[in-house]
Design a binder for these strands. Structure first.
Lengths: 385, 385
DNA sequence: ATGAAAGCGCTAACAA
DNA sequence: TTGTTAGCGCTTTCAT
């Protein structure tokens, strides 16, 4: 059996040799129809697990200094009830012996890891990694690390991750639910535990857990009003999956704006997509076929907005002249689009930051003050609307 | 003193009230000149730290069942030397008592956390979060979690993070160096420790540490040759910071291609940027001023390529007719650019995956086989070149 | 100011 | 098959 592993599908089965290219063996993976070369895998040397020497522990320093373990611990932790002389002596010795505290032992006795757990649906979506960045920044500024788990939008994985993390691995949990998640017992059973929890971005209603949300409703309202003021009357909306609280909030804001300006709400102007390019393109086709007089499109994300504009341009519809397009999220892609994208900045990073701050507050205070925070966003007017 | 905190700069000083808007108090932060409202901060209730009840431990189950702690441990860990009857009995009891193992204690006695440490320069750059995604996927498939630290491109932070993580917090370390990092003692001192290390993307030469790299040299060579075949003779290159091994590798590939096709290398066609839009725009201005006959630009990243194209369009230079542009990385932005971006796909996610695989192999085998892996990429031909 | 000793929850070697 | 015991490295209480 071939020991070569496909670089694409990661299997060792069904690999065939496929000629030599530039002096290197080329392979073909039948499973995923992928050609590749083993391009420069150099095995330099094979040193054994020759761990140099054992980590020095408090007891080693105790032995070397003649003091007890307790005293050494006190000296190294800057406790007050110790003579300056002893403390300095021990610190110098520890330095010389290259002492490194075993954080695992420390965490164990304190039952605290100085680590936050974060569960997000995916790392491939800008919006999540941006929130993650905010979380990380805030956490780091308080000396906390973060441990990341992804649910891949699946309930099972989300649930398993919660369980694992809550078993003393972390001091606090930040969670953004998967699409699949629509029951919340896996979370609610942890509500009264030592470890605090904060939900962000996609949250469950009715749980006694702090939350940090984007201003979806208000955002949709502002965006819609802006378009109405520009003269639009037939405003289509591209939403995410129907069950999404996010879709519902945005829809609500949209409806309020319409009502306020006495425009009839037409359900048929809404489409619900799964974020794939396919479904976005389909939506555009659908609108143009059944509602050729559509004069604006509000998109669930900047990425989808970009796809919408690309699609419209490909069939020679002018943006914003014929159809105005607005996105959500203020991602980089909006800046380089042609025309530049008008978008509602949901302050994604701030959501992460605030969620992080909320949980750090709970950890340091020991209080379980339940807060619901809505991060205000703002409309970024550019050229597409 | 005001207790309101600025949503932008995160301070409580210098906050002024600034009128009422839609029934909500509006504020102004003098420090960072930012207006905001406290938009819907609801304090729902303030429950104390009423931890329901202590976590049940092995000893609780031992007491309840009449068996010893050791037997309970064996039963719950599916060890063989235990009667089926006892095992089932204990498992049922544990379930009933809602036992959850204390992972921290487990990690402590095993000195293994089933966690990989990852140090990356930033979470705000697509390329890093994409690699992270690859790392995470591979790790999760082997039951490992990942703990993320960012260096923010600073040596100090990188060094501190290495130190913290290597103190028994993790089973393996994956590191992508910061720009600032140009000495590597902070890493080399850990080479012979129990915890294996793998460098990826930005690596140090001369250390006995496994590495996973993008095929920068080959990529630049392919890209350059492609442009030459299209008839380009005056090919400018936008590089990252000069000290970057990445910049050097790409430069090398570029030079080889020129030499092969007997085109003179002109150092003045190179610019070195810091990834900011400013420096990219400046580069374009520079080329157009001093080398108006430039017929192609190779960019360090797709993001910069996008900025280059935006800039060229703004001064009515046609891409690819007058100047061809090629990016690196195959990011989403390239697909929606107009014209669509020709780019070299460095297989960013694969780099993460392979780095992760490498370290998992080292962990499970206990071997320290030092490998250098170059992940092959491929040219994606679209419209910009 | 310092030391002795208990204990955190679990695993594993050894004994029975 | 089951129990006893030591111990992982550290913190902390209680003596001295």
């Amino acid at each position: 059996m071939s020991r070569v592993r496909c670089l694409q599908c990661n299997q060792t089965e069904n690999i065939r040799k496929a000629g030599i290219i530039r002096g290197k063996q080329r392979f073909y993976c039948k499973t995923c129809s992928y050609h590749f070369t083993e391009d420069k895998i150099e095995k330099v040397k094979n040193i054994g697990p020759n761990v140099t020497d054992k980590q020095v522990s408090l007891s080693d320093i105790a032995n070397a200094s003649g003091f007890s373990i307790a005293t050494v611990s006190r000296a190294l932790n800057e406790k007050s009830d110790i003579s300056v002389k002893t403390r300095e002596l021990i610190k110098v010795l520890a330095e010389k012996m290259n002492y490194q505290p075993n954080l695992l032992a420390k965490s164990f006795v304190k039952q605290s890891t100085k680590t936050l757990g974060v569960i997000i649906p995916s790392l491939d979506t800008t919006i999540f990694s941006t929130m993650l960045s905010g979380i990380q920044e805030m956490a780091a500024s308080s000396g906390y690390r973060i441990i990341i788990c992804t649910s891949n939008e699946m309930y099972e994985q989300e649930s398993a991750n919660i369980q694992a993390l809550m078993n003393n691995m972390i001091d606090g949990l930040l969670i953004c639910h998967s699409i699949q998640t629509n029951s919340f017992e896996h979370l609610s059973i942890h509500v009264n535990k030592r470890i605090p929890i904060v939900q962000f971005y996609r949250v469950a209603l009715g749980l006694s857990i702090s939350q940090v949300l984007a201003s979806d409703e208000r955002g949709a309202l502002e965006v819609t009003e802006y378009l109405i003021k520009k003269g639009c009357r037939k405003i289509a909306v591209l939403l995410g999956p129907k069950e999404f609280s996010l879709s519902q909030s945005r829809l609500k804001g949209y409806k309020i704006a319409l009502k306020k300006h006495e425009i009839n709400f037409d359900e048929r102007l809404l489409t619900y997509v799964d974020f794939g390019q396919e479904s976005v393109y389909k939506s555009v086709d659908y609108w143009l076929t059944y509602f050729p007089d559509v004069d604006a499109i509000i998109s669930i994300s900047d990425k989808s907005a970009a796809q919408i504009i690309t699609k419209l341009k490909s069939i020679n519809i002018k943006v914003p002249n014929q159809i105005r397009v607005v996105g959500f999220g203020n991602e980089f892609v909006g800046e380089i689009l042609d025309p530049k994208l008008t978008t509602f900045d949901t302050q994604t990073k701030m959501i992460g930051k605030e969620a992080s701050r909320l949980i750090l507050d709970q950890i340091s205070s020991g209080k379980r003050e339940i807060k619901k925070l809505v991060i205000p966003g703002k409309l970024i007017v550019r050229d597409s609307a």
